[in-house]
Amino acid sequence: MIKVLTPFLLLTLLATGTVAAEVGEDGLHKQDWFTISFRDIAEDIETAAAEGKRLAIIFEQRGCIYCKAMHEKLLSDPEVSDFIKDHFMVVQYNMFGDEEVIDLDGETLTEKSAARKWGYVFTPTIVFLPESAPEGKTVNEAAVATMPGAFGKWTFLNMFRWVSEKGYAGDEHFQKYHAIIINDLRESGRLETE
């Protein structure tokens, strides 16, 4: 199917900086660089590590306006998407989906029962996993960071940077890390509205 942009729509997209995200049959917005996997978390962690990346799981749901905004405003921004693609393998989960998931503790679940088990109730929620799969832990116990909800560009991007730089392993809390970057952006005149 060929999509044609009318001059008005093209001007609107250019003026707002918003790009329409594709929506799959499950009602979730899609990025062509998301990884489709068998949802075996330990295996996905190993696959990401073999590519020199970290595993990030994004929980979304049909009709989520915050998920749509994340796709259209954040994941369509080349500065954000290029960093994520270079450093993370991203697997999308449907908070109310029935696809099979294998937790790190070996339990087989559906996406929706995994979300309940791990305590994730907001969409989007991004879960950052360790570099290697720990044995006997669940995903929420093993996660090195979790970002529940939608944020502005710099909070969103800085969380991915902080995890990539293993900030969680040191003494500098994410909020301090983020504040330093925001201050530097203000001083350089690059800060957009957060």
Rank of each mutant, 00 (worst) to 15 (best):
residue 116 R to N: 10
residue 97 G to R: 02
residue 82 D to C: 05
residue 94 N to Q: 06
residue 112 K to V: 02
residue 135 E to C: 01
residue 129 L to M: 14
residue 118 W to P: 06
residue 137 K to D: 03
residue 138 T to V: 05
residue 87 H to Q: 10
residue 145 A to E: 15
residue 88 F to S: 14
residue 147 M to D: 03
residue 127 V to T: 03
residue 76 S to V: 04
residue 127 V to H: 02
residue 97 G to Y: 13
residue 124 P to S: 14
residue 154 W to N: 13
residue 152 G to R: 08
residue 142 A to E: 08
residue 102 I to V: 15
residue 119 G to R: 15
residue 145 A to S: 15
residue 71 H to D: 10
residue 102 I to A: 07
residue 116 R to W: 03
residue 93 Y to Q: 10
residue 132 S to H: 01
residue 149 G to D: 08
residue 67 C to T: 12
residue 132 S to R: 01
residue 110 T to D: 01
residue 98 D to G: 08
residue 129 L to I: 04
residue 141 E to P: 02
residue 74 L to Y: 07
residue 115 A to V: 00
residue 76 S to Q: 08
residue 71 H to E: 13
residue 69 A to M: 03
residue 173 H to D: 07
residue 171 D to Y: 02
residue 172 E to W: 13
residue 158 N to F: 12
residue 127 V to R: 07
residue 145 A to V: 12
residue 121 V to C: 01
residue 109 L to V: 07
residue 156 F to A: 05
residue 117 K to D: 12
residue 97 G to V: 01
residue 73 K to S: 13
residue 144 V to C: 09
residue 84 I to N: 10
residue 152 G to I: 09
residue 105 D to H: 02
residue 79 E to T: 12
residue 131 E to H: 09
residue 74 L to E: 09
residue 106 G to H: 02
residue 142 A to T: 11
residue 139 V to M: 10
residue 156 F to C: 07
residue 69 A to C: 02
residue 72 E to N: 07
residue 170 G to C: 07
residue 113 S to G: 11
residue 111 E to Y: 03
residue 102 I to M: 15
residue 168 Y to M: 08
residue 122 F to Y: 15
residue 113 S to K: 15
residue 150 A to W: 15
residue 128 F to T: 03
residue 67 C to L: 14
residue 164 S to K: 09
residue 122 F to Q: 15
residue 136 G to N: 11
residue 135 E to R: 05
residue 160 F to H: 04
residue 159 M to F: 11
residue 163 V to W: 06
residue 127 V to Y: 06
residue 68 K to V: 03
residue 140 N to P: 00
residue 120 Y to D: 00
residue 111 E to R: 06
residue 113 S to T: 15
residue 98 D to T: 08
residue 148 P to A: 13
residue 151 F to M: 10
residue 71 H to C: 09
residue 143 A to K: 11
residue 99 E to Q: 14
residue 153 K to H: 10
residue 102 I to L: 12
residue 158 N to Q: 14
residue 158 N to S: 14
residue 139 V to F: 02
residue 105 D to W: 03
residue 163 V to D: 09
residue 171 D to T: 11
residue 69 A to R: 10
residue 103 D to L: 06
residue 112 K to T: 13
residue 79 E to R: 08
residue 104 L to Q: 05
residue 132 S to N: 00
residue 72 E to V: 05
residue 167 G to H: 09
residue 174 F to A: 13
residue 157 L to F: 02
residue 70 M to E: 14
residue 83 F to T: 09
residue 164 S to F: 10
residue 166 K to D: 15
residue 165 E to L: 04
residue 111 E to T: 06
residue 75 L to T: 04
residue 153 K to Q: 12
residue 93 Y to A: 07
residue 70 M to A: 15
residue 72 E to H: 08
residue 106 G to R: 04
residue 99 E to Y: 08
residue 155 T to C: 04
residue 112 K to P: 03
residue 153 K to L: 06
